[in-house]
Design a protein around this nucleic acid. Structure first.
Length: 755
DNA sequence: CGTGGTGAGTTTTTT
DNA sequence: ACTCACCACG
C-alpha cells in the first residue's frame, strides 16, 4: 500500500491522505481524478475504515463500474464488493426500498422512466382538458423535474412567485396543478420517477430524523465524484449524510460542468469552501493525458468563462501537433473529410480504429458519419440513441413484469392492456381512467372488478377485461412459486407476445425476436449470478430494479474488432482517445441555438467544447461546415464563435486560406475560416445575421459555364466541369468534384459559383 | 374497435 | 428523415 502512494504526485497524495474533514478536490481534465478516488478508498480501508461503511457516489453506472474495478485491483474483489458504490440514483433507490414504508410506499415500488413520466403527464393534460399545443409534455415535464431537483413540492411551487409568474408568462398557468396531480398519480401507482429517487430520499431524511441518524452514523466516509454535476437535491442529501462527522471528499472540475439542463448546479462546487468553513481544497493541475498544445488550446478557450475556479492546468508531455481545422461545404462533405482524415491518419501511424473518436453536439449529426463509414468499410460504434431497455418490444415485455410485481403500475397497465391486441381500445381505456379517478381507486382495481366500480362498458368488453385481469393474476400467483426466468418464459408464451412476434417473418420482427431472446438471456444470467452469490429466491423485482436504472452505455460488450467511436460530447466525458474529431462547430449548433439569449448557457457550451478537446491525447481536429441539412431544409452556417476564442497559435491554419480570403473580397478580417467574420463576434440572436444568410443562399449568382471551368458548389465543394448538355433551364453539367466524385447538376437549381 | 394512410412537427444533452 | 397524432374507412 505504501508503494501505491509513491505512484501519486504531490497534490494527488495530499488529497488522498487528508481524511479529517471536508475535502474538495478540483481535478483538471486528465489529472488523475479516478486515481485519487480509488487510492483514497484503498487508503481509507488501510486506515481501518470498514468497507461497507464507505459510500462512494458517482454520476453514471459506467463510472461506478470503472471505480469498482480499479478498487478491486487494489484491495481485492471481495472487499471492494462490500463498498456502497454506485450512482446517486441506484444507491438511493436501494435505501428507498429498505425504508419505503416510512414514505407510504411498498418495497416493490416501480421506477418510472422518462417515457412513463411523459405518458402519465400526457394523460393528465388530457384529463384536465388543456390544450396540448400549449402544454407541451416535454416542457411541463422539464418544469416538474427542475422543481423536484430543487426540492420544491407542489405546495412550494404554488407559493413561489417567480415560478408561477414564469408559467403564467409562458401561457401555462396550470403547470402547478398538473405537478400536484402527477405526484398523486405516481403515488397511487406506487411509482417513483428518476427525480423522486432523489426527492424522496430527501423527504425520508427530512421527515424521519431517526432514519437519517441511522444512515449518517452508518456511513463513516462519503466520496462524491463529478461534484460539479450534482443538483440541489443531491447536494442537500450529501450534506445531511455527513452532518455528524464532516468526513467526506468531493471531486470535480467546474470547467467540466455540462449538465445544468437537468438541474446540475455549478454553484455547489463553486461555493463549497464557503459552505464548509473547515474544508480543505486540493487542486490537481498536471494533465497526464494530452499534449502541451491540446492543454494550452483548451485553456485558452475556457479562459473566456468568467464564472470559474482559477487553476493552471499544464502538461509535461510533448508539445505535439497543432489543433487541426477542417472546413467543409456541407454536412455531407464534413463526413467525407473526417472519415478521409481518419483513413489517412490510420495509414500513416498504424493505430487501430479504436484510437479515433468523432464527437458531436447532437445525436442527429451521427447519421452522415455512419453512412460515410459504411461506404468506406470503416468499422464504427455509435453510443447513445435508444437504450436496449427503451426499445418498444422490450418495454412491452418489461411492462408485463412490472404489472405482475406492482399491479398499481398505471403506465405498465396502459401499455399492455391491449398488447398483444385483445380488443381493448382507447375508448375503453379512457373509461377505465375516468372510472378509477371518480372512485379514487387504481386502474387495476377497475379492470379486475368492473362491476363493483360501475364501469360503463358492454358485456363483451367486460369479459375481455376480466380475462386480462385473470391472466395477470395467474402470473402474480406463479411469481411466488417459480424463478424469475421461468416466470418470464411463462409470461411471454401465455400473454400471446410470443405468437405475435412470430406472426411475421420480416427483418424487423426477426430483430424483435432477437431482442426478446437477449432480454430472456439477461434475466437468466441475472438469476444464476444472484443464486451463485447465495440469493435463494431471485425475484423479478430484483431484476427490474436493476435494469430500470441502466442505460445503453452500460452494455459493455467486449469488442472483437477495433472500431471508431461516434458519440455526443456529453457521453464522452471521462473518456480519452488518441485522436479526436469535434464536428459541427457552427453557431446555433455548437453553441446550441437553445442558449443564444443566455450568457450562462453559452459558458456551459464553452465548457462542453473544453470537455471535447481535452478528450484528445495526441491529435484534435475541429470541423465546421458552410451549410447543413437541418429541420428538413438546407441552412447556411457560420463558424462557431468558439473557433475564434481558441488562441490561434495552437491552431493549424491551412495555407489554402490565404487564397480563399483573397477570393472573397467581403472578408474584412483575417480568420482561420476565411468566412465573413464580422468585426464583432457573433452575438445574441436578435443581432445575428441569420436572415441575411438565408438571402445569400438564394441569391447565388448564375454563371455561364463551359467545359473545364472550376466551380465551387455549396454542398459538394470544388470541382471541374467535364461536360454540358441541354439549354436554358434544363441545362445540365457533369462536374468532377474533389471530394465527392462526379455529380450531375441541373444548373437552374444548383447552388455554386464559378471560380 | 382496429387499421392504414396522411400530415405535421421535430432535435440538446441523460440518471 | 422519422415519429406521432389524427382521420376515414372496414
Amino acid at each position: 500500500m505504501e508503494d501505491y502512494l509513491e505512484e501519486l504526485n504531490k497534490s494527488q497524495k495530499e488529497a488522498v491522505l487528508y481524511t479529517d474533514g471536508p475535502a474538495l478536490v478540483i481535478a483538471g481534465a486528465g489529472s488523475g481524478k479516478t486515481r485519487v478516488l480509488t487510492y483514497k478508498i484503498a487508503y481509507l480501508i488501510q486506515q481501518g475504515y470498514r468497507p461497507y461503511t464507505i459510500l462512494a457516489l458517482t454520476f453514471t453506472n459506467k463510472a461506478a463500474r470503472e471505480m469498482k474495478n480499479r478498487v478491486s485491483e487494489m484491495v481485492g474483489a471481495e472487499t471492494a464488493s462490500r463498498l456502497w458504490m454506485g450512482t446517486f440514483h441506484s444507491v438511493f433507490s436501494r435505501i428507498l426500498r429498505k425504508e419505503a414504508v416510512c414514505l407510504g410506499y411498498t418495497k416493490d415500488f416501480t421506477i418510472y422512466d422518462t417515457s412513463d413520466s411523459k405518458s402519465l403527464l400526457k394523460s393528465i393534460i388530457k384529463e384536465f382538458a388543456l390544450d396540448d399545443k400549449k402544454y407541451k409534455v416535454g416542457s411541463v415535464f422539464g418544469r416538474i423535474s427542475h422543481a423536484k431537483n430543487a426540492l420544491i413540492s407542489p405546495d412550494d411551487y404554488d407559493r413561489n412567485r417567480s415560478l408561477i409568474e414564469a408559467d403564467h408568462n409562458a401561457g401555462i398557468p396550470r403547470t402547478c396543478d398538473i405537478y400536484r396531480a402527477y405526484v398523486a398519480r405516481c403515488k397511487m401507482a406506487q411509482a417513483m420517477d428518476f427525480d423522486d429517487l432523489l426527492y424522496n430520499t430527501n423527504v425520508l431524511f427530512r421527515d424521519h430524523p431517526d432514519v437519517l441518524k441511522r444512515y449518517s452514523e452508518f456511513f463513516s466516509y462519503v466520496l462524491v465524484d463529478e461534484y460539479q454535476d450534482t443538483n440541489y437535491a443531491q447536494h442537500v442529501i450529501v450534506k445531511k449524510l455527513v452532518q455528524n462527522h464532516h468526513r467526506f471528499c468531493v471531486v470535480g472540475d467546474d470547467a467540466q460542468s455540462i449538465y445544468s439542463f437537468r438541474g446540475a448546479e455549478i454553484e455547489n462546487i463553486l461555493s463549497f469552501e464557503k459552505e464548509y468553513a473547515d474544508s480543505r481544497i486540493f487542486k490537481l493541475e498536471q494533465n497526464y493525458r494530452s499534449t502541451k498544445t491540446i492543454v494550452k488550446a483548451a485553456n485558452s478557450l475556457i479562459d473566456k468563462n468568467r464564472n470559474q475556479i482559477r487553476k493552471e492546468v499544464y502538461s509535461e508531455n510533448i508539445t505535439g501537433n497543432k489543433i487541426g481545422l477542417i472546413r467543409a461545404y456541407s454536412d455531407l462533405e464534413e463526413g467525407i473529410q473526417v472519415m478521409g482524415k481518419i483513413a489517412e491518419l490510420r495509414m500513416r501511424s498504424h493505430c487501430p480504429y479504436s484510437d479515433f473518436a468523432i464527437l458531436y453536439r447532437t445525436n442527429a449529426q451521427s447519421r452522415i458519419f455512419e453512412e460515410e463509414a459504411r461506404k468506406r468499410g470503416i468499422p464504427y460504434r455509435i453510443y447513445g440513441g435508444l437504450s436496449f431497455y427503451q426499445r418498444k418490444e422490450i418495454k412491452d415485455v418489461i411492462s408485463y413484469f412490472r404489472l405482475v410485481v406492482n399491479p398499481m403500475d398505471e403506465e405498465a397497465l396502459k401499455r399492455i392492456i391491449n398488447y398483444p391486441l385483445r380488443g381493448i381500445g382507447d375508448t375503453t381505456v379512457g373509461k377505465i381512467i375516468a372510472c378509477a379517478s371518480t372512485n379514487g381507486v387504481s386502474m387495476w382495481e377497475v379492470v379486475s372488478d368492473p362491476d363493483t366500480n360501475a364501469l360503463d362498458v358492454n358485456n363483451g368488453t367486460k369479459r375481455k377485461l376480466i380475462a386480462f385481469a385473470q391472466l395477470i393474476q395467474s402470473f402474480i400467483r406463479s411469481s411466488s412459486e417459480i424463478s424469475a426466468y421461468d416466470l418470464a418464459i411463462k409470461i411471454v408464451s401465455e400473454s400471446g407476445i410470443q405468437k405475435e412476434l412470430f406472426s411475421e417473418m420480416t427483418i424487423e420482427y426477426q430483430a424483435k425476436r432477437e431482442n426478446l431472446q437477449e432480454l430472456l438471456n439477461g434475466i437468466s444470467l441475472f438469476t444464476t449470478n444472484r443464486e451463485e452469490e447465495g440469493d435463494e429466491s431471485v425475484r423479478l423485482i430484483d431484476f427490474l430494479s436493476e435494469v430500470s436504472l441502466l442505460t445503453d452505455q452500460d452494455a459493455d460488450e467486449e469488442e472483437e474488432v477495433s472500431k471508431v467511436t461516434l458519440m455526443t460530447v456529453h457521453s464522452a466525458k471521462g473518456l480519452e482517445f488518441k485522436n479526436v474529431f469535434v464536428v459541427g462547430l457552427e453557431e446555433d449548433l455548437f453553441p446550441s441555438s437553445m442558449c443564444m439569449n443566455s450568457p450562462k448557457a453559452i459558458e456551459e457550451e464553452r465548457r462542453l467544447l473544453y470537455v471535447a478537446i481535452t478528450r484528445a491525447k495526441e491529435n484534435c481536429f475541429l470541423s465546421c461546415t458552410k451549410s447543413r441539412f437541418r429541420n428538413g431544409s438546407m441552412e447556411l452556417c457560420r463558424p462557431s464563435r468558439f473557433l475564434y476564442e481558441i488562441d490561434p497559435q495552437f491552431l493549424d491554419l491551412p495555407e489554402a486560406n490565404t487564397v480563399k480570403v483573397q477570393s472573397q473580397p467581403e472578408n474584412n478580417a483575417r480568420s482561420p475560416f476565411g468566412v465573413a467574420r464580422t468585426t464583432t463576434p457573433p452575438q445574441f440572436k436578435k443581432v445575428s445575421g441569420v436572415t441575411d444568410n438565408k438571402k445569400n443562399i438564394s441569391s447565388f449568382p448564375q454563371y455561364d459555364l463551359s467545359v473545364g471551368d472550376h466551380i465551387e458548389h455549396e454542398r459538394f465543394g470544388k470541382g471541374e466541369v467535364i461536360s454540358l448538355e441541354g439549354e436554358g433551364d434544363s441545362c445540365k453539367a457533369k462536374v468532377a468534384f474533389e471530394h465527392v466524385g462526379e455529380k450531375q447538376l441541373l444548373l437552374k437549381f444548383a447552388r455554386f459559383k464559378k471560380l
